[in-house]
């Protein structure tokens, strides 16, 4: 039983890492990435190939996974964000990117195509995940409460006004995307060394959906909200042993219901905190109601 619970917690926290990354991007810049599973996949494959074929140290491989996904995020983000694409256009571009990545993974020889990579060493243990998740949340927290984070929020709320105030929209969005992609990559690296087997069909649009659903349900503009949502989304269906397919039905319904009844999500722009931050977010609460 403890093993079962620790398994759920491990998986939940791996998703938390990726969700925090997406929360920093989607929640704080208002842009939608429908292909985030691709960053997860790139990280998983980078780390797995490094430890599997080249015997690289696990932690170095994890770092490489983050760097690689961040780099790909930069390559995707630079042209699309530079062109200041509308939200819809950007979402469709990322959708295509996610699918294109999967097709590439299925056809490269180093990834062993659709057969996937079996027999990856199990390096990912619960303590490792907890430490890395805490680290990522800490960094994300500092990121969104820094100058860059405030700039990102300004971009989301009103990008014309933000630009007038001297915020560089392109840099702000690109920085968030790279951070977000790197988080996805690290989560992917942990995932690969947790399940010891990866194949391209694991990283479908459903994974992207699950991440997006967690961010939206947790509250766009919050870090702790999506963290909780990710844990709930993984944990509750797992504990209740709900068939996978009905989970997705519920996610879909949940997204629509949240948009109709509580568009600001579980926590809205707020965070779970003792004090201090409340004043900071009080200014944005007005926006949350609309």
């Amino acid at each position: 039983m403890t093993q079962y619970l620790s398994g759920i917690l491990s998986l939940g926290l791996i998703y938390v890492i990726a969700t925090v990354g997406l929360a920093v991007f989607t929640g704080f810049t208002g842009l939608f990435s429908l292909g985030h599973a691709a960053f997860f996949a790139i990280g998983a494959y980078t780390a797995a190939i490094l430890t599997y074929f080249y015997g690289v140290n696990f932690y170095l491989a994890l770092a490489a996974a983050g760097v690689m996904s961040g780099l790909v995020g930069f390559l995707i983000g630079y042209p699309t964000l530079k062109a200041k694409l509308r939200t819809d256009y950007f979402a469709i571009a990322t959708l295509g990117f996610g699918e294109a990545t999967r097709v590439l993974l299925e056809n490269l020889s180093i990834t062993q195509g659709a057969r996937g990579l079996p027999g990856i060493t199990n390096y990912t243990t619960l303590p490792v995940i907890i430490v890395i998740a805490a680290l990522v949340i800490w960094v994300a927290w500092n990121f969104v409460h820094s100058r860059h984070g405030r700039a990102a929020i300004a971009i989301r709320e009103d990008f014309v006004a933000a630009e007038m105030m001297g915020v560089n929209i392109f840099i702000g969005r690109l920085r968030s995307l790279i951070f977000s992609a790197a988080c996805g990559g690290i989560a992917g690296g942990l995932f690969a060394h947790y399940f010891c087997f990866i194949q391209p069909s694991m990283f479908t649009a459903y994974m992207s959906t699950q991440l997006t659903a967690a961010v939206v349900a947790g509250g766009m503009g919050s870090i702790s909200g999506p963290v909780m949502a990710a844990l709930i989304f993984i944990g509750v269906p797992e504990l209740l042993r709900v068939a996978n397919i009905w989970r997705l039905v519920a996610y879909g319904l949940l997204l629509v219901l949240i948009m109709i009844f509580r568009p600001q999500g579980l926590l809205g722009y707020r965070e779970i905190s003792l004090s201090g931050i409340r004043d900071f977010f009080a200014r944005f609460r007005k926006g949350a109601r609309s």
């Binding site: 939608f32 039905v249 879909g252």
Partner: peptide, 23 residues
């Protein structure tokens, strides 16, 4: 609501319908 919310709602509908057919 802003078009972002419409888009999320549309995504939700799509996920819901597709998986309902699956299930």
């Amino acid at each position: 609501a802003s078009s972002l919310f419409f888009m999320i709602s549309a995504m939700g509908t799509s996920i819901f319908l597709e998986n309902l057919v699956y299930a």
